[in-house]
Each structure stands twice: as structure tokens, then as C-alpha cells.
Design a protein around this nucleic acid. Structure first.
Lengths: 116, 116
DNA sequence: ATTATATATGAATAGTTGTTCAAATGTCAA
DNA sequence: TTGACATTTGAACAACTATTCATATATAAT
């Protein structure tokens, strides 16, 4: 009897058939990678790092990071859209604070990975 | 006596002076954001996800992800450079496996954030 | 040696992203 | 209202990234 496939390919198929259905669905996949994309910028990490210490307004964050208020505001919008921070207007200022407990733990984990 | 600054700016300076020195150094910052950048791609997340189940070669990964072997190989190189996977040549195949325990925990944490 | 298979690589391209700049909005004080 | 301050926004530009395609390398079998 003629096996259509070479034996290397036969070996593959078994494990492929087992793992392929256990892969995450597209939507979850995008949500996951989008989350990491948001974390994958040094400006945004600095913002989260600072906000871990205290609620801060845009001007203060801009002074702490040594960056334009505009650049900071743009990045805060990204963090807000990702629901990682929340904002609250008080007078002329807009105060930002952390919105998610997971983030601090994830950053800590990443630190352990990076510092080894 | 003449205060050079308005009172809104005076309020700022105190908190800025406290937080600014506690910010992470540039190098750590880049290491951190580089790590998240690597995770911030759905193809690479799929690769890590699959490798969590078993050691796999490029052809198998390419079949599981439904992607070109070339594209998979390119992304595996990124993961290898980031030391998230390691490779081992056996015969004609190159087998990849996870190289870091932190990653699985971090992905799990990110999942919890994303699925709420 | 030649052929087939497995993987890696480089160049090219299309798409995405972060910062800057200028301008708009909103808030308070005089 | 006018002016000063705080923040947001949109457009533009440069830098980066993921995939494709063609090709190169390496291993095994004939």
C-alpha cells in the first residue's frame, strides 16, 4: 500500500492535529498582543511607573519625564483607551491615576525576566 | 518677598522632585519596553502559546499557525534574540522550545487583564 | 554528485507608530 | 471680555516592523 506522505511529514501531522485546536481565537489573540503593544513603549512605561507612586496631572508628568506636554498627552490617551489609567478633571488640571492592579504585577514579572 | 512662581506651579515642584529621582534608568527602561515589544505581536504570541504545549520544529509551527515557514522563521529569530525560546538542530529539523518560565506567567496575567 | 527537504536570510514593500508643531478647546482670574 | 494657563487634537514626518518573495545554506537519501 502506498503512503502518500514521507515519514517526516507523518510524524508532524499527529502533533499538529493535537495542538492546532487548542490555539487561542483570533480576537483573544489580538486583545493580548494589543495589550503588550501598549506596554511596549518606554514613554508609556515611565508614565505607569510614575503613576504607581501618586496621582499626577499632565504638567507634572511632563516635568518628571522631561517631555513635551503634547507628547505626554498623546501617550496618556493611548493608556486611557487601553483602560490602564483613568483621568479626572479638577480645575484647570487633569489628574491621571492607575486603573488596573494587574499592570503593576506584570511589570514586576517583566523586571524579573529582564534583570537576569 | 517675591515668589517667582504662581501657586499652581509651586504645588507641582514638590511632588516632581520626589518622584523624578525614583524613575528607572534609561537602560532598564529600554530593556523593559523591548521585552513587551517582543510580546506585542500576535504571531509571536501564537508561537509561544504552541511551544507551551510541546517542543516543535519550524514546519510544525508553520502548519499550526497557518503561515509561511519563512514568516515563522523570521519571528522565531526575534524570540530567539530575546532569549524567550531556544533552538536545537536534529537532523534536517530545528526544534524550538520555551526558554523562560516568566513568560507563561506574564501571558496568564495579561489574559486576566484582557478578559475582564 | 544530484535531488529533495528543512530552515534561514536579505531586500523590498506596505502598514504602523511616536514625536513635533501649530492650532483648538476649556478653565480660571482680573 | 480679555489674557494666561492646562490640556487636547490633527496633520506631517521619520523611524520601525511584519510579511512576502527569491535565494542561500545545510542535511539526508538515492
Amino acid at each position: 500500500m502506498d503512503n502518500k506522505k514521507t515519514d517526516t511529514e507523518a510524524l508532524n501531522q499527529e502533533i499538529i492535529n493535537r495542538i492546532k485546536p487548542s490555539m487561542p481565537k483570533k480576537e483573544l489573540l489580538y486583545d493580548l498582543s494589543d495589550f503588550f503593544k501598549v506596554m511596549g513603549d518606554s514613554t508609556r512605561i515611565q508614565l505607569l511607573w510614575a503613576l504607581e507612586e501618586s496621582e499626577l496631572c499632565v504638567g507634572e508628568l511632563s516635568a518628571i519625564l522631561d517631555m513635551t506636554k503634547s507628547a505626554v498627552s498623546h501617550q496618556l490617551k493611548v493608556l486611557r483607551t487601553a483602560k490602564l489609567v483613568r483621568s479626572q478633571k479638577r480645575g484647570k488640571n487633569v489628574y491621571y491615576s492607575l486603573n488596573d492592579e494587574h499592570v503593576q504585577i506584570i511589570v514586576k514579572m517583566a523586571l524579573e525576566h529582564v534583570c537576569e
